[in-house]
Design a protein around this nucleic acid. Structure first.
Lengths: 224, 224
DNA sequence: TTTTAATTACGTGTAAACACGTATTTTTTG
DNA sequence: CAAAAAATACGTGTTTACACGTAATTAAAA
């Protein structure tokens, strides 16, 4: 059942998942601005947890999910949603067209991937495409995918070593400029522990120094 | 004339300046959601240039301006607006509470600085405060300012030392992950020269390590 | 043309990051 | 409950970054 059967009068319900109220509001405005062919009902969640709770209680046709969110990340959230309710169409949203994010979201089960800088028209196009059972990528994302030849090899997996919550926390602190020692004091841990986390981050992400880590943090939207 | 005299029926007109439609929409929703005490009229501009054009033609009471935008940056835009129409109150908007950005916007002439992750309530508070002729900072921003002792010395100017083209070039290479030695080889220079450039960058930008430099590079859009 | 800003470069020392291991404890999950 | 994953921590050594100076040459601006 790939195609979404929308009969007359059926109201398509969409769940917007993003930790920024501003982004949710922006999405909502765009979605509601051109509801000629699709009757939309929009709900919001400020976190992956809230999203899962809402999805457990209500029936949604689709979810629009930001890549980076505090507790539960975008890919994690997508993963749980598809395991829980495989019928829900998922459009991934991100600030950056980083290959790893695209891969992460798509592999988790998203049906499309668009950047936040798209306009209203393209957003609606993406929503329609995904709702109809197809896959949508915005331009630069599509280019990246082709460029990386991801369309050929199905699931080779780019890095896919999972970064643990603790590591993510450390990564963020590294990116804001703290030294291992400062992070250790902040988290009440040994400096050597942070040393290890840092090393593991470098290995898992395939990076070689602090600059790389900061870039990664940026791209994961850990800085705000 | 510090206080803004708003008489009954006066409609306060606000110009939202951000290159992301989504952000502008989000702001608009937030602003219009609680227009009990202030009657707002909201207009938008997707760039600094467009903003200046609109400001030249219409009278605005305030502008809400994102720090980073493609062509004309936030501070540049602010600078031109205040020189052009000093009466316009300006609220600076940013994703990050980096000291350099706060300084840049405030020094350019902004009347307040808030992060994009604020909620509706705080946004309105900020708007009201700024419109009434006072200065507003969201929490983390205020902390940074106090921490840096910016409130004491009025216009000592934190960085405002100009970053030279060569330094910019080095900064970019640092951010993409090269070591001083690698940069030196790439530019056919001594390692010590790059050492100096790096040090000067740290001093001029008021940063303390590589992480800070990478963040700076990101914000200056040197990467992507 | 003089003065200023930019680019280049070195000396010396300390602090921090990076690389490679190993290893225990705690938490999660099948 | 057993197995796997995550979080904790240490040892040792090398490399790189950071801090504080000084200073010559070159390009740009007043």
């Amino acid at each position: 059942m790939e195609t979404n059967k929308r009969k007359h009068g059926h109201i398509t319900s969409v769940l917007l998942i993003d930790d920024h109220e501003m982004v949710r509001d922006g999405l909502k405005v765009m979605l509601l601005s051109l509801k000629k062919d699709i009757r939309l009902k929009v709900d919001e969640a400020a976190s992956g947890e809230e999203a899962l709770r809402k999805i457990a209680r209500n029936d949604f046709d689709m979810a629009i999910i930001d890549y980076q969110m505090p507790e539960l990340s975008g890919p994690e959230t997508v993963c749980r949603i598809v395991r829980f309710k495989p019928a829900i169409k998922i459009l991934a949203l991100s600030n950056y067209d980083e290959l790893a994010y695209i891969e992460g979201m798509m592999h988790a089960g998203a049906n499309g991937f668009v950047l936040k800088n798209i306009g209203c028209g393209e957003l609606l196009m993406a929503v329609r495409t995904v709702l109809s059972g197809n896959t949508y990528f915005c331009n630069s994302v599509a280019l990246k995918i082709i460029d990386a030849g991801l369309d050929k090899k199905p699931h080779t997996g780019i890095h896919h070593k999972t970064i643990t919550p603790r590591e993510l926390e450390v990564l963020r602190l590294i990116a804001v400029g703290l030294t291992n020692d400062e992070i250790a004091r902040k988290l009440f841990l040994s400096k050597r522990t942070i040393d290890t986390h840092r090393q593991n981050l470098l290995n898992k992400l395939g990076l070689k120094n602090t600059a790389g880590l900061v870039r990664a943090a940026y791209e994961m939207k850990l800085l705000d």
